[in-house]
Design a binder for these strands. Sequence first.
DNA 1: TTCATATCTCAATATCTCTTGAAATGTTGA
DNA 2: TCAACATTTCAAGAGATATTGAGATATGAA
Lengths: 101, 101
Amino acid sequence: MFGALSQETRLKVVRYLVQCGEEGASAGDVGAQVHASSSRASFHLTALERAGVISSERQSRRIIYRANFDNIGGLVSFLLNDCCGNHPEILACCKADIESC
Amino acid sequence: MFGALSQETRLKVVRYLVQCGEEGASAGDVGAQVHASSSRASFHLTALERAGVISSERQSRRIIYRANFDNIGGLVSFLLNDCCGNHPEILACCKADIESC
DNA sequence: TTCATATCTCAATATCTCTTGAAATGTTGA
DNA sequence: TCAACATTTCAAGAGATATTGAGATATGAA
């Protein structure tokens, strides 16, 4: 997942799909949004899906992509717990964000 | 930073340095811990430092590396806020971790 | 000064990743 | 069936990244 997110175009895709929420967006939509050709968009969408950041579902002639919220949350969780052992200095950075929800 | 973390050896380095805390560890120490030759360890430590994940300080003949907690916390914060717009499903994943600190 | 230690730098090679454009696949409606 | 649309697949080339081993640099101690 870190690898999938370490690319400008893919990061834009994720931000857009998170905004779209459950509704998601078609491959063409996403491609236009991030100014990528269809094959380029497809390449990056495939990479994100392989990494588990997003998921896809065919809806008639389009393919709808959605952010995979569970897995993105899991990545944050991995960073906080497994990777950083719930280190207080790191937890402190996002305490405010969490409390406001 | 995502790029820096998207590599097995470097992820191991970060986990180790987070464990070491403020004390940090020397380049040789880190290299041994992750089973990397000196030049390989140096290469990856440099990459992590360039990305802001860790920082270094010379202590006589060794160079001590430490996790950069502010920046790692900043990355989590970026994921939660900027990237994911404080999406509730994603925040929920680490709510428990935060509350326990 | 000289030696041993700790770390980095460099060059060569191998491997992976990104981009492009053309062609293939699958889907719908006339 | 045929045309158009939406998306993917493929091959080629450019560029980035990882690994290795040899050598350079810097530090401390005898």
